[in-house]
Design a protein around this nucleic acid. Structure first.
Length: 297
DNA sequence: TCCCAGGTAGATC
DNA sequence: GATCTACATGGG
């Protein structure tokens, strides 16, 4: 259910594009720039290209209208609808978070168009292993380099080519040295270890039906995956919306809003769990983007 | 030149 | 247990 001023969102196929009207709680700039995704490119104001699930999508937003270029309704329903989390009522989530917590209102108001993308597990796991001790533009560069070197060409826009993130079978044949050549540095052996586990898990019904704790414990076996990366993978790659990754930015803004002093990460996690519960992941993303965008300190 | 980046593993106390 | 440090690479 997706309501906007009492109007229900409409999906139409017009001139080879999928057009959504009366879209609510959706800002394509915030969705891509909020730090959850490393496989996209900005074309223009409110116009982006993203690559996911072996497909490329050019997408543009004009107020409450969203145009997904060169897409069928079938593709919208099988890929992009879930990717953009269109069946989740963000209005309800925001109202519930705000009612529990005055301190969140500023971040939610400023970043009200964020949605948690439902991205591919494999790509998210490797991307967030790469993310440690790196800035977002560097992470994007490395994800693009891996995709160009080992993925498949999935389209081009304005002469620029886009590549999908490689499949697990391809990843399994990339050596540590080859990962190093792509500027992953000390993370290269971590990536290889992650791929080994992914291969092993792909032969089981691995994460289906696992609790948050069980899934997290599984991820923590991978060398190079600690508490923060595990939580990012749980939230962005596996759909565990209670996950609350605490990085430097979240630590900073949580201390600013709630604790008023230096506070250890595990204490912040415990507080977030009690305060935000199953909506922890959403709260985290509003706060992260708000803080990183220079709205605090 | 120094410092930091969506952290983590390993060493040391 | 709780703190310290090295880790590749790039940008301010």
């Amino acid at each position: 259910m997706n309501l906007y001023n009492g109007d229900i969102m409409k999906v139409e196929h017009i001139n080879n594009d999928v057009v959504l009207t009366n879209v609510s709680d959706f800002n394509i700039q915030q969705i891509f720039e909020c730090g959850q995704c490393f496989h996209f490119e900005k074309l223009d104001n409110m116009e982006y290209v993203t690559v996911a699930f072996g497909r490329m999508l050019r997408i543009k937003q004009e107020n409450n209208k969203v145009i997904m270029f060169n897409t069928s309704e079938d593709e919208y329903n099988s890929i992009w609808r879930s990717y953009f989390d269109m069946d989740t009522d963000y209005g309800k989530i925001k109202r519930e978070l705000e009612s529990k917590c005055d301190e969140l209102k500023g971040a939610i108001n400023e970043k009200s168009g964020i949605r948690i993308l439902r991205q591919e597990f494999t790509e998210i796991l490797l991307s967030f292993i790469i993310s440690q001790n790196k800035q977002i533009p560097h992470i994007k560069q490395i994800v693009a380099a891996i995709s160009k070197e080992y993925g498949q060409l999935v389209g081009s826009v304005n002469g620029k080519e886009y590549y999908s993130f490689p499949s697990l079978d391809i990843l399994a044949n990339i050596s540590e040295d080859e990962f190093r050549k792509l500027k992953t540095g000390f993370r290269a052996p971590y990536l290889c270890d992650a791929v080994r586990y992914l291969k092993k898990w792909s032969e089981e019904e691995s994460f289906a039906g696992l609790t948050y704790e069980e899934a997290k414990e599984k991820l923590l076996q991978i060398k190079g995956v600690g508490d923060k990366v595990a939580n990012c993978v749980l939230l962005f790659g596996l759909g565990y919306t209670s996950a609350f990754p605490v990085d430097v930015w979240i630590k900073r803004i949580m201390e600013h809003l709630y604790f008023k002093k230096d506070t250890p990460k595990d204490k912040i996690v415990k507080f977030a769990d009690e305060r935000f519960g199953k909506y922890g992941g959403y709260a985290q993303q509003y706060l992260f983007y708000f803080a990183r965008d220079g709205k605090v300190d």
